[in-house]
């Protein structure tokens, strides 16, 4: 049962990581803010990237906790693909789901 919990947590953190990496790209940032001219500042971009890669790292650790290392690496790589595809789908149809994440990183808030 422990491994199932780890997997679910890993899926969640990879999604989180991919989502924040997507926000670090100006195109997707604009998509979520809904404002044509908005752009992440360099420091926001950095913060999003660091948080993104960190989340991906955490998910790797979670995978390693669940399985034999050789297997865990495979699960992690496949989860990256799944999460990237998932985030792309969210950005297409449910971009407002990423608003909370955006708010976390935009100090000035949205207006």
């Amino acid at each position: 049962m422990v491994e199932v919990v780890c997997w679910i947590a890993a899926i969640f953190t990879t999604m989180m990581g991919m989502a924040s990496l997507s926000l670090s790209l100006p195109n997707h940032w604009r998509q979520v803010t809904g404002i044509e001219t908005s752009q992440p500042t360099p420091s926001q971009q950095n913060a999003l990237r660091i948080f993104g890669y960190l989340s991906l790292f955490v998910s790797l650790v979670l995978c390693l906790a669940a399985d034999h290392p050789t297997m865990a690496v495979l699960v992690w790589v496949m989860l990256l693909a799944l999460a990237a595809k998932g985030v792309a789908m969210i950005l297409t149809w449910r971009e407002h789901w990423l608003k909370p994440l955006l708010l976390m990183f935009s100090r000035t808030g949205l207006n």
Partner: peptide, 30 residues
């Protein structure tokens, strides 16, 4: 640069290319 992009409402040629790139890139290691 637009890694996560899929625009289903653009004209077919464009949205199909989006999907082609997206599916090709996200699962590239696989």
């Amino acid at each position: 640069r637009e890694f996560f992009t899929f625009r289903p409402n653009k004209q077919t040629q464009r949205s199909v290319l989006d999907l082609h790139n997206l599916t090709g890139m996200v699962a590239l290691p696989f």
